[in-house]
């Protein structure tokens, strides 16, 4: 398969990249890991005139923790996130999402910024990022702005980023004690799958009293974007975590999803699985919350 022709740019700083995106507004696309973009270009789904590669910008690949904040450069590869002990400790559900994504070969190329920016409804990283309340650092020649990830996705392949804007980093507040999260995905086989359903849940307990202070449930692959489940969250908040409560939350999550039928799965199955995965990820979140005190 032959890639269509394009002009190629490889800036070495974020500001140069922003400059290029501004100059070629409308005809340039950002190339991160390329695992989505190049495939779509080979399939002639996309045909950008220019590619601006983010592969040689060292400042994009930082992963660090300071003052209770996890800063993940948008250029960090998914395999780096999957292997990061810091992510495993502070944002385990994100680590699980990274481990679930694609294949080892894809993970070595794909970046967190690309996984967010391509805005695929079934993407593995957004649900966890949503439940952690991650904030995206967006850069353009106009400067920097911060946007909660929940406000970023607008539809399949559509985002709130301006044409000349790039994701520079993802910022996560490290969850406090008695907080935990879980992530599960369901596809057809155990690797290299487009998810049929993927769900992340987050619970924050009120210390040893074990009342749920905060709850967030995010559903992937069951709507045009990853979705929050306000109904499930409303069921959970202020209650003591029990199996029965999680069942109620799972039912509520099913009501909040908007699955469609496609060749990968029926709407009915997806809705059913939202319930199963919501309950299971809540159980994971509870276990982690109890262990983090």
């Amino acid at each position: 398969m032959i890639l269509p022709k394009f002009e190629f740019h490889e800036p070495t700083s974020i500001s140069d990249a922003c400059e290029l995106m501004a100059r070629h507004r409308g005809e340039a696309r950002l190339l991160a890991g390329g695992t989505d973009l190049l495939v779509n270009m080979k399939k002639k789904v996309l045909n950008p005139k220019r590619l601006v590669s983010l592969g040689r910008i060292p400042e994009l690949t930082q992963v660090e923790r300071s003052n209770g904040t996890l800063w993940i450069g948008a250029g960090a590869t998914v395999s780096a996130i999957a292997a990061s002990a810091m992510v495993a400790r502070d944002a385990s559900a994100l680590g699980l999402g990274a481990r679930a994504l694609g294949t080892p070969l894809i993970r070595n190329l794909a970046t967190i910024g690309g996984n967010i920016g391509s805005a695929r409804p079934a993407a593995d990283l957004p649900p966890a990022l949503i439940v952690y309340g991650a904030v995206l650092v967006l850069r353009s020649v106009a400067g920097e702005r911060r946007l909660p990830i929940g406000e970023f996705f607008k539809g399949p392949g559509l985002t709130a980023a301006h044409e000349d804007e790039l994701i520079a980093a993802v910022v996560i507040q490290v969850p406090a004690g008695y907080a935990g999260a879980g992530y599960l995905n369901l596809g057809v086989r155990k690797a290299q799958d487009c998810n049929i359903v993927n769900v992340a849940s987050y619970l924050e307990l009120d210390g040893r009293a074990e009342v749920i202070r905060a709850a967030r449930v995010a559903l992937g692959s069951v709507g045009p974007t990853p979705l929050r489940s306000p109904s499930a969250e409303a069921v959970l908040i202020g209650q003591k975590p029990t199996e029965a409560l999680f069942d109620l939350a799972a039912d509520a999550a099913q009501r909040d999803c908007m699955p469609i039928l496609d060749f990968r799965g029926s709407a009915e199955y997806r809705r059913d699985m939202v319930g199963v995965l919501a309950r299971r990820t809540l159980t994971m979140a509870l276990a982690e919350a109890r262990s983090r005190n």
Partner: peptide, 16 residues
Amino acid sequence: VINCDLAEYKLVTALD
């Protein structure tokens, strides 16, 4: 053919 690639036509992987 909808699934005319090896992403959507699913062979068993080493994990399966």
